[in-house]
Computed example of a mutant assay.
Amino acid sequence: MWKTVVRRVLIMIPQLFVLSVLVFLIGKMMPGDPFTGIINSMPDIDAARIEELREKAGLNDPWSVQYKNWITKIILHGDFGVSYTYKIPVKDKIKLPAQNTLWLSLFTVMLTYAIAVPLGIRAGRYNGSKFDKAVLIYNFITYAIPTFILSLLSLLLFGYQLRIFPTSGFVGLDSIGNTGRYIASRIYHMLLPAMTAAVLRTTGIVQYLRNEVIDAKSQDYVKTARSKGVPIDKVYSHHIFRNSLLPIAAFFGFTITGLLAGSIFVETIFMYQGMGLLFIESIMSRDYSVINALTLLYGTLALFGSLLSDIIMIIVDPRIRIE
Rank of each mutant, 00 (worst) to 15 (best):
A98T: 07
F80Y: 10
I121V: 14
K95S: 14
M42A: 15
G124Q: 03
S64Q: 08
G124R: 00
N60I: 03
A123E: 06
G120Y: 02
Y67N: 07
R125N: 03
G78E: 03
G124Y: 00
D61Q: 09
M42N: 15
A116N: 02
R49D: 06
L106K: 07
P43K: 12
G78P: 04
P118W: 14
V109T: 09
T85Y: 12
L102Y: 13
G58C: 05
V117S: 09
A48H: 00
V65Y: 12
V109W: 04
I39T: 13
Q66A: 04
T72Q: 14
I115V: 13
V117F: 12
Y86T: 11
G78C: 05
A98I: 01
A114G: 10
R54W: 01
Y113N: 09
A98C: 07
A57E: 03
D79Y: 08
N127W: 09
P89I: 11
Y84T: 02
Y86W: 15
V90L: 05
W70E: 01
D44K: 01
A47G: 09
N60M: 07
E55H: 03
A98M: 11
A47I: 15
S105Y: 06
G120I: 05
D44W: 02
W70V: 00
L119V: 06
L96S: 11
K87C: 11
T72L: 10
A57I: 00
A116W: 02
A123I: 09
L102S: 13
I39C: 04
N40F: 13
S83D: 01
T72E: 15
N127K: 10
D44I: 03
K95I: 07
N100R: 07
D79Q: 07
M110A: 15
W103H: 07
S41G: 13
V109R: 00
K73H: 13
Y67I: 08
S64A: 09
Y84W: 12
G124K: 00
D61R: 02
M110G: 15
D132T: 05
G58T: 06
P89C: 10
